[in-house]
């Protein structure tokens, strides 16, 4: 009989400790006289105390926001976009440096050009005028290679690729 009561209490300890049920008068009497059940009850109570302290450490909505933000930032398309931006910056910087070097080594005696309102004319780079055909080829080769590689791929097609395909594409670009 006592053993049966111990088993019954043990089955209900979690619910009572979590405040979902309460002890009956008989169960309370049994608890008062049974050291084993009392020790188990104290364990459950202590475990609940741990749970309450843990609950105060995690704010579900804040955590959800942080996790979804990380997931968004970690999608392959985003990573590719970020890396492409850096490749673009590097290519532009290299081209600009080359132009500066060429301009300095072959000073232009032409009058300073005025800024045109025509976009096509505004893109005219006087530094290139002093380069030979071979030097221009080198500049073009250094600029065209990566740009060609990227421009032949329509970025809108990324949406049609799954994560594995995007990862593979990224690996190919990175060599």
């Amino acid at each position: 009989m006592i053993q049966e009561t111990c088993t019954r209490l043990s089955e209900r300890i979690s619910e009572v400790a979590r405040g979902q049920e309460t002890w009956t008068v008989d169960e309370e009497k049994h608890l008062a006289g049974c050291a084993d059940c009392r020790a188990e009850w104290e364990l459950a109570h202590t475990a609940r105390l741990l749970a309450q302290r843990a609950d105060a450490l995690v704010e579900p909505r804040v955590l959800a926001e942080a996790v979804t933000r990380r997931l968004r930032d970690a999608t392959p398309a985003r990573r590719i976009g970020r890396r492409l931006r850096w490749v673009g910056v590097a290519v532009a910087a290299a081209a600009a440096m080359l132009l500066v070097v060429q301009t300095v080594s072959a000073p232009n005696t032409d009058p300073i050009p005025t800024v045109s309102s025509d976009p096509a004319e505004a893109l005219h780079l006087p530094g290139l005028d002093s380069l030979s055909v071979d030097e221009l080829e080198i500049v073009l080769a250094s600029i065209d290679q990566p740009i060609e590689a990227f421009s032949t791929f329509d970025s809108s097609e990324w949406n049609a690729l799954d994560d594995h395909e995007l990862e593979r594409l990224l690996r190919e670009w990175e060599g």
Partner: peptide, 11 residues
């Protein structure tokens, strides 16, 4: 859906 799963199991 991800947000709901995190909210549900965070604690």
């Amino acid at each position: 859906a991800a947000s709901e799963l995190v909210t549900r199991h965070a604690r």
